[in-house]
Design a protein around this nucleic acid. Structure first.
Lengths: 240, 240
DNA sequence: CGAGATCCCACCCCTACAGGTGTGGCGGGG
DNA sequence: CCCCGCCACACCTGTAGGGGTGGGATCTCG
């Protein structure tokens, strides 16, 4: 009943407006597939056109959603390449790393949206639509975000969790990200820099992850990562 | 001309005697294939029946040749399992590790041949035939081996080198073995114990290998190993 | 023949990096 | 309240790795 009401409401609100076409970008198939599943219930508003793993956008889309799981943050040039693509449309960053410095770097580079992974799926869809309409949207999950704007924060519908490799094996998102970066060959210090964590935090995550993985050395962790999909994928899946 | 003379000689000597059937055992396909190629010119004397990677012998053979590249030595129980197989026939060890302690352990366990990898292909074939005839053969490459026996040490024919993963990339056999053990997740100390080298030798090999591989950390070395076939294989190839 | 290269093997000194043990704070949810 | 996830810290030990050295055996070439 509530479900059908939601559909009706959405349809009424978006009457005569085409769905936003979105490309999903991240190096791990599990991640982009998790995003796809998250957005699926909102198909009339947001249409996933393709999933890009380690590949540039392959067709013109309205928005490219860049998930930063185990990826360079916006202070590195990966985002520049997406921004430079004539097909990527508006570029939106979807991330745990909501530090102000990263936000401002992103905006300076021309990123049109900087969204925290704490958003619900509906909030994410709202934001994508707003970006498509020409707004610059920053939602870091901070209650002070967008002061004086849109206070109807009723409980949102839809899951808040995407997916990530290692999840089935019990790793939290952050643990998995750290393990993925290990599996990419990075040292602890490099991981700290890449993920905007302190070296101590990295070590803590490693410790916790190793316990769950049942390994006691980095070498074994890399092998575990290779076997459990923690190595980056490469490819493109055209949905539309 | 010399070639045809050799053939004629071999045929005359082995008249009326079937070829020795041999299973080749090692965890790396490249290694057992290298052995297969090494023995191929001697097909009328030694017939390779199957290649076993991480698998028990699958059919009755006269001799099983166990190559110790990146494998447990005879002081571990891997050899016990081969010896216990009703199909393995006589078990021969082919190795760089010719320490007296290992030789005596092997013989105590019932190994019928302990052969150094410095032997030529022809010497290897000779040894396999002798084992098949019921002899216990130890050839460590020491000039004092088998005193007073068979002094016609004319230059042997056939290559002395088998094959190993990483060879194409410029790694020596020992370097490759150490890298393979790293890629199996072993620590330096564990590698030293497994390969009967000092910890210092292990480090030296690692240093030299890393230079050739273009890596500077164990993590990257493992990834290199995974990409270049240094992870153990699994399977059986029936030739006969 | 001697020199040089290569491989196997070993060693030393030192620094860098990884990892174990333990601690604590904050926010959210049950 | 407890639990979990995210985040951070301190202290300490263990492991890894860089630079350098040298010996023995074998092979190739001048």
């Amino acid at each position: 009943m509530t479900q059908s009401q939601t559909e009706t409401t959405s349809t009424a609100r978006d009457e005569g407006r085409a769905a936003v076409t979105v490309a999903l970008a991240n190096d791990y198939e599990v991640v982009v597939q998790g995003l796809e599943r998250m957005l699926a219930p909102y198909g009339v508003r947001v249409e996933v056109a393709e999933l890009d793993m380690n590949m540039p956008v392959g067709q013109p889309v309205d928005v490219t959603l860049y998930d930063t799981f185990s990826q360079p943050q916006v202070d590195r040039d990966a985002i520049d390449r997406i921004l430079a693509s004539p097909w990527a449309g508006k570029v939106v960053v979807y991330t745990w790393n909501v530090q102000a410095a990263l936000v401002s770097t992103a905006l300076e580079k021309g990123v049109a949206g900087y969204l925290s992974k704490t958003l619900s799926a509906e909030e994410l869809v709202d934001a994508l639509e707003r970006v498509h309409r020409g707004e610059v949207v920053v939602l870091t999950g901070d209650p002070d975000d967008e002061p004086g704007e849109d206070d109807d924060h009723e409980p949102s519908e839809g899951p808040t969790a995407g997916d990530w490799p290692g999840r089935e094996q019990g790793l939290t998102a952050r643990e998995a990200e750290v393990v993925a970066l290990i599996t990419q060959g990075l040292s602890n210090q490099e991981i700290a820099e890449r993920s905007y964590l302190s070296i101590n935090s990295v070590k803590s995550y490693i410790k916790a992850a190793y316990r769950k993985m049942g390994v006691d050395s980095r070498t074994k962790a890399v092998l575990w990562g290779v076997e459990h999909g923690l190595t980056p994928d490469r490819g493109r899946r055209i949905v539309r």
